[in-house]
């Protein structure tokens, strides 16, 4: 179990993490809560901490409290929802595909969801704003479905899945490019959604995503031990009585649903789904129940960092969170590639 087959080498862990991994997960949770409170005070103008506390206890007495309740809280809650969703989705996919580079981006979900959402905004201008997330979700499922369909040859080999995923993603990317060229004037609005931003989100958006995450994440955690079995390799897993193909499909479906929901409410935020599980693996090792829980908290921390930096650094201009995660994530991705190449 200390050997993570996906990474092909033993994972070094700290002593605490080895014996009491849940202590580490708990610390991450505490850190996330602290960061949330700090994030609430940061915006175009600093909000006094007393106002944040007043707002959290439900009082709308001061301007600061109103700002927190109306603008900051929905964004911060979405950071939690999207951070958890993307990180768990990425962790599941890395476990299922047994490819350390797997992420929602890889298996066609992100681009599929992005394309479908844009298509709706640009071609059906009469459609309600509330329909965009549903379209994105449909696109994510179609993207992942296509990847799975094309990759299926009496089962899905990890390498094949990754390759087909890149091809399908590229096709959707081409579709997005086409829409960008076809509707240059309307692009401003959709582009900011496409780069992944929590700008202008209200509690409506939170309520749209929260039920999915609240149900899907526990479902994944319940099945987490199956990821451990899959990690032993197809032969061994089959030998242990695991219906490898079916388990893989079910887990992938959960991962796809999670990532689609996130893209639907926050746009294409990249790298969180890829990085969070990696950091978690280094901290708490490869057992998936712990790994996914830690990854979820790290996902939240990454999202909070990205969104807070995005809205605080150049105020009143908003830098989309997706741009910030790409700035953080790009170099980390390169680091991973270099490390894997050794």
């Amino acid at each position: 179990m200390t050997v993570n087959v996906a990474m092909g080498r033993p994972v070094r862990r700290t002593a605490v993490a080895a014996r009491r991994p849940w202590i580490l997960v708990g610390s991450l949770l505490a850190l996330a809560v602290v960061c949330t409170l700090v994030s609430l005070t940061i915006g175009a103008t600093r909000i006094p901490f007393s106002d944040v506390l007043a707002a959290l206890s439900g009082q709308r007495t001061t301007d600061g409290a109103e700002v927190v309740l109306d603008f900051q809280l929905p964004r911060v809650l979405l950071c939690w929802v999207v951070g958890i969703g993307l990180a768990v989705s990425g962790g599941v996919m890395q476990g299922v595909v047994r490819n350390p580079l797997a992420a929602p981006d890889i298996i066609g979900v992100t681009k599929g969801a992005g394309f479908a959402g844009m298509l709706l905004v640009l071609t059906l201008p009469g459609a309600s704003v509330a329909l965009v997330p549903l379209a994105a979700f449909a696109g994510g499922v179609v993207g992942a479905g296509l990847v799975y369909l094309f990759a299926y040859r009496r089962g899905v080999s990890p390498v094949r899945l990754a390759l087909v995923g890149i091809a399908v993603s590229a096709t959707f990317e081409a579709g997005i490019r086409y829409l960008l060229v076809k509707y240059p004037l309307d692009v401003n609005a959709s582009l900011i959604w496409l780069t992944g931003s929590l700008f202008g989100r209200s509690m409506d958006t939170v309520w749209m995503a929260l039920p999915w995450i609240a149900v899907l994440v526990p479902a994944v955690l319940v099945m987490a031990h199956r990821l451990d079995v899959l990690g032993l390799g197809d032969d061994l897993a089959t030998g242990l009585g695991e219906p490898v193909e079916r388990t893989r499909r079910n887990l992938l479906l959960l991962g796809v649903a999670l990532a689609s929901v996130c893209v639907a409410v926050a746009g294409t935020i990249t790298f969180v789904g890829l990085i969070a599980p990696h950091i978690a693996r280094r901290l708490v090792g490869g057992r998936h129940v712990v790994l996914l829980s830690a990854a979820a908290m790290i996902g939240v921390l990454l999202m909070l960092l990205a969104d807070t930096v995005g809205r605080g650094i150049a105020a009143p201009l908003e830098i989309p969170a997706g741009v910030v995660t790409a700035v953080i994530g790009g170099p980390y991705f390169l680091y991973l590639l270099v490390k894997l190449g050794k």
């Binding site: 509330a130 749209m208 039920p211 526990p218 479902a219 959960l254």
Partner: peptide, 24 residues
Amino acid sequence: SAATLGAALALAVLTAACGGTAGS
């Protein structure tokens, strides 16, 4: 496991649908 998954998905769809309609 399939039953768990099915139930989870169905529940998610249901709750999200409720949240969605309430919102809209």
